[in-house]
Amino acid sequence: MGSGFDFKVSVMWESVPLLLTGMKLTILITVMGLLVGFILGTVFGLMKISRSLFMRKLGGFYVESIRGTPLMVQVMFIYFGLPLAIGMRVPPMLAGVAAIGVNSGAYIAEIVRGAFQSIERGQTEAGRSIGLTHLQTLYYVIWPQALKRMIPALGNQFIISLKDTSLLVVVGVGELTRTGQEIIAGNFRAFEVWLTVAIMYFAMTMSIAKVLNILERKLEI
């Protein structure tokens, strides 16, 4: 090989311990971000099917504005833009969780809306006809059924958000991608290190897919 490229498996192995710490942070940000996203998504998703026009508009505005702008821009806005307005630095980790949360929230809102709307009208009527209030009907009758229908789409969002955390490289959170970058800055072994990083992302997303598969089979979705 004229290029003088020599592939070293040992470099891959050597980078693993450090990358594992980055991977932990990636998982942490994803999980926390999705928790935030799930809460936002539920609130705004329900707003989108509210009887109040104002609520529907507000829910729609959130979803459209987040879905219509790149995540990278949202991250930069939260980390570099927002501090100027509020006169306070946003810690990178917080900015990361907030960005993933706000971003996934918009997509989850659509998932929540769709799942709620897919539950037959008769279920609401049956709930109301035994004297449950509107909220009780939502909580005891509709929500559990909707949640079950949401699982495949939520799993998909989990995988997307996990990969999206790699964009947080721009704010300097030491997640997996950033850690890879830092290792390369020291050893210049881009091929081996990026390959290892890719394998680690793939291992995580595959695991999520597998768990989801089992869950879906168990719940007979």
Partner: peptide, 26 residues
């Protein structure tokens, strides 16, 4: 009380769960 053409049972609850939801929550 109302009984519907399409039954509208709550699919995520057992028969007993369907019957006891009203008494416990209402």
């Amino acid at each position: 009380g109302m009984v519907f053409q399409q039954f509208n049972l709550f699919p995520h609850m057992t028969a007993l769960g369907n019957v006891t939801l009203g008494p416990t929550k209402v």
